Computed example of a mutant assay.
Amino acid sequence: MRDRSPLVQLTADVVILTVREDRLEVLLIRRGKAPFEGMLAIPGGYMEADENLWQTAIRELEEETSLDGMTPHLELVGVYTDPERDPRGQIASGAWVAMIPDPPVAKAGGDAAATEWLPVDQALKEPLAFDHKLILQDAVEKARQSLNQSTAAVSFCRKEFTISELRRVYEAVWGGKLDPGNFHRKVTRIDGFIEPTGETTTRDGGRPAALYRAGARRWLPPSIPRPEVSA
């Protein structure tokens, strides 16, 4: 029988996103214990007595996935309080989205029996534990909005990147193509968005391409239109 105690417990769930091979991917765990043993889920865990939810999210990044040394861009997605969301009792969750570049191989920890990176569109077709499909949908939309409003896109890039690499981040997250020439003009005209390093690279193929780094700006004017994508 479901526990109807009025005591509410708090957890933090962290949707970890990266762009790899020009597609948006999410890190999921394979649950190693009940409830939903064997099902895919978003990494997360209970808030401890000496923590706030932000600190819980940071800790869970390490404990569940062993992403050593990563300093992800973290944003709050929302708080999920449906009393039926967890069969163990009334458990509310603060969900966060983490945007990281070129991640190392993740290692399962805590309640995770295994971890795996999946393209987001594939992950959304899988049966996910708890209400994690809803959280994943909301987190992806949060990331898409962040690219409209802030310089979060550079969080998916390495420390130094080309304009083409940055454009492919927008295309992967937004799910649509952008005109290369227009994109180059727009991002290079936004003061403080990106800064040239003075170096070039040929890793994109073809002629050497200029390398850039993140600038000091954090918020963007509405200058990079999000492409319309059919459902």
Results as ranks from 00 to 15, higher is better:
residue 52 N to I: 12
residue 53 L to F: 07
residue 54 W to Q: 07
residue 55 Q to V: 13
residue 55 Q to S: 14
residue 57 A to P: 08
residue 58 I to D: 01
residue 64 E to M: 00
residue 66 S to G: 03
residue 67 L to H: 06
residue 68 D to P: 00
residue 69 G to C: 14
residue 70 M to R: 06
residue 71 T to A: 10
residue 71 T to C: 05
residue 73 H to S: 10
residue 75 E to M: 08
residue 76 L to V: 15
residue 77 V to D: 07
residue 78 G to L: 10
residue 79 V to D: 11
residue 80 Y to C: 07
residue 80 Y to M: 11
residue 80 Y to V: 04
residue 83 P to F: 10
residue 84 E to P: 00
residue 85 R to A: 13
residue 85 R to L: 11
residue 87 P to H: 13
residue 87 P to F: 12
residue 88 R to K: 12
residue 90 Q to L: 04
residue 90 Q to T: 14
residue 91 I to T: 07
residue 92 A to S: 04
residue 93 S to N: 10
residue 94 G to K: 01
residue 95 A to D: 08
residue 97 V to D: 00
residue 97 V to H: 04
residue 97 V to T: 09
residue 98 A to K: 00
residue 100 I to V: 14
residue 100 I to Q: 00
residue 101 P to H: 15
residue 102 D to M: 08
residue 104 P to V: 14
residue 110 G to L: 11
residue 112 A to T: 06
residue 113 A to Q: 15
residue 114 A to Y: 09
residue 116 E to T: 12
residue 119 P to F: 09
residue 119 P to M: 09
residue 119 P to D: 12
residue 120 V to T: 10
residue 120 V to N: 01
residue 120 V to W: 02
residue 125 K to H: 02
residue 127 P to K: 09
residue 128 L to G: 08
residue 130 F to N: 03
residue 131 D to C: 07
residue 133 K to T: 15
residue 133 K to I: 12
residue 134 L to V: 13
residue 135 I to K: 10
residue 136 L to C: 11
residue 137 Q to P: 06
residue 137 Q to T: 15
residue 137 Q to D: 12
residue 138 D to N: 15
residue 139 A to V: 08
residue 140 V to T: 04
